[in-house]
Every structure is written in structure tokens, then in C-alpha cells.
Design a protein around this nucleic acid. Sequence first.
DNA 1: GCGACAG
DNA 2: ATCTTGTCGC
Length: 219
Amino acid sequence: MDEKRLREVYEEQRRRAHEVIQADIRPIEVTRVTGVDVAYADPLAVACAVEMDIHSRRVLRVGHHVDHVEAEYIPGAFQLREGPPIIRVLRQFRPDGPVLIDANGILHPRRFGLACLVGVELGIQTIGVAKSLLLGTIRERAGDVAMVTEDDEVLGAALWPEGRGRPIYVSVGHGVSLETAIRVVRSSIWDGAVQPIREAHILSGDVLKHGLASQSETR
DNA sequence: GCGACAG
DNA sequence: ATCTTGTCGC
């Protein structure tokens, strides 16, 4: 990707960052949470959405979308690669409740990560959950959480799942406050992982490698 | 200028 | 992300 195009993408991110709502646009009761992820195999990209019931810890329904890879991975412009397939699978899935995305929300150089794009584009509540820190400073830990800031601006939070040494990074995608985002992610963690995302990850890799058939005989 | 850099 | 089985460690 050329520099000119990349600069345009960055400019659009700065522009659209103003569309992000960092407050609950509708109350969340944390009963149903959807996780999404994408698996790749050269020309193919398989996006999956998995809706789970937090109380019973069971999968309620799944959806997938086979797409083609549109762009290479560029830190800070991840949305060009993973945005299209995720938006397409969610458009048909029509999630009921918050959506957890394997990426950052406003914890981003231009405050508009993949989770923000998906949320703003579809008008749904999204939360970014990253496995590694893209930027920022982790402040003082209090219990299982610590704020992540950049020049005193709170961009997200580091959250330590029980029994795991390394934290995950939570940030607002769209339509939720950081507090709500943390509450939703906490409730979605068991066995040391953010389960809705973990299920979506396993399923996407499964559909990519063995096809849709493997769905029925899993979990 | 040099390194870092969501998946 | 992906190439890949067993294996070292808490």
C-alpha cells in the first residue's frame, strides 16, 4: 500500500473518531455477548460470529462469512484487512447485545481502531479486546485492572484474567463506556480466556480448514 | 534518524 | 495472522 493512500486512511480515522460514542447508547445486562474473529488462508478470509449466554456459558448461535483478503496487515490500519469480513458477517448475523472484537477500540494512534469502525458503521455496541499493547502506558494496578493512558488521556484498561500472568487490553469500540466495556469483558472470561472471542477464533479456523461441516459435531 | 507496531 | 508436535513449566 502506498504512502498517499495510507495517509488518506489515517485522515479518515481522525475524522471518524468523532463519531464514536463513549457512553452506553442502550443499557447492557450482560446475558448475551457476541465474539468475532477472522482466520486467513492466502486468498480466503473466514469471519465468524459466536453469540454466547454468559450465565449458562453455552453457545447460542453462530454465523460465518467466507470472504477474500482485501489488504495486508498494517499496524494502525488493521481495519482495512479485518474490517470488511467482520462487517459483512455481522450485517447478516444481527447481534443482539455487545460485540467483542479481537482488536483495539479507541486505544489507537488516531483513536479509531477496528472495534470503533465496526461499531460506528453498524450502529452497534462494540468493545475492543487486544492481546498486546499497541500504545500507551499501563498505570497503577488495582485488583485485576489498570488504566492505560497516553499523556493523561485514558484510552483503555489492562485487565488480568484470573490465573493468567499477562493482561488483555480493553477499550471502547462504540456505544459503551469504558466501565461497561470492562464489566462485559470480565463477565465473558472463564478458563483464562475471553470465551466468545475464543469460540469465534476456533470456529473460524475450523471452517477455514474443514469447512462448515465441522460445526455440528463441535461443542 | 531509529525503533515500535492490534491480528 | 500463519507455518507446526511435543514439550518445558507453573
